[in-house]
């Protein structure tokens, strides 16, 4: 298995947020993670990346056969994990182009992609500082593509982005994932991004637990129709 989580329990600030999570993602496979606000989706991504304060109490995170639980964030990044943040940090005095040039030595790639994502003028600005909501998401997408990770953790890549820009971002992301056969774990509330990437699997997280795995488009339709509460009932019924 390309990426695997086994019996993962995660604590934040002494509180258990995730419980006994199991999931697996193949190479060239995209999984969508649904779930209501506060259910633990971001926590899962942050635990995968190894952020301080997201304490693994139990279980394993395995990437390309290697147990990565004890690796630092940058070690995981260098192994091939990448993240788009739901709420990215902004850093004063550090320019977007500095990061871009660190991520790739290919200047033409920086130029082309920044143009496609309408970020040419942002390259000389401080990272995410004063960027609008949509600009921030484009800057995140820009960076993760330059980083060229093998496994992409995308935390609401399209939230706060207008329809036109969703279409631009969606095309860039979809093309990238398909052409380069990337694997990804994608969080979405709106579902818009599903129109652009070919997701094979979906799962729902409720109260820090993963409830089921299924066809993402089908799941999303049901969630829209019935809401998460009903979805929970149904799944509980199914699993018992």
């Amino acid at each position: 298995m390309f990426f695997e989580i086994k019996d993962l329990t995660v604590e934040v600030e002494g509180k258990t947020i995730l419980r006994d999570i199991n999931l697996s993602i193949d190479k060239d496979e995209v999984m969508v993670l649904f779930g209501p606000n506060g259910s633990g989706k971001t926590t899962l991504l942050r635990a995968i990346m190894g952020f301080a304060g997201y304490k693994v109490i139990q279980g394993e995170i395995i990437f390309e056969g290697e147990r990565i639980n004890n690796l630092t964030i940058d070690e995981r990044a260098r192994l091939g994990l990448g993240i788009i943040y739901q709420h990215p940090a902004s850093i004063r005095g550090v320019k977007l182009h500095q990061i871009a040039s660190f991520l790739t030595k290919d200047d033409s790639k920086i130029k082309d992609l920044s143009q496609r994502l309408s970020l040419s003028k942002h390259l000389d600005r401080d990272l995410n500082q004063g960027f609008s909501g949509g600009e921030m998401k484009r800057s995140e997408l820009f960076q993760i593509i330059l980083q060229d990770s093998k496994f992409l953790c995308l935390d609401e890549p399209e939230s706060g982005v207008d329809i036109e820009n969703i279409s631009i971002m969606g095309k860039v992301l979809g093309e990238y994932i398909t052409k380069l056969k990337k694997s990804a774990l994608v969080i979405t509330h709106t579902g818009y991004i599903l129109d652009y990437i070919n997701a094979q699997k979906g799962c729902v997280m409720i109260d820090g637990k993963l409830w089921c795995v299924g066809n993402p488009r089908h799941m999303f339709e049901k969630i829209k129709e019935l809401g998460y509460e009903k979805c929970k009932d149904c799944l509980i019924r199914k699993s018992t």
């Binding site: 990346m49 952020f51 301080a52 630092t72 964030i73 940058d74 995981r76 990044a77 260098r78 990448g82 993240i83 943040y85 990215p88 940090a89 850093i91 550090v94 990061i99 660190f102 991520l103 960076q143 980083q147």
Partner: peptide
Amino acid sequence: EYLCSRGFTR
């Protein structure tokens, strides 16, 4: 942490 997740060392 943001920069580390982009591959910079600490």
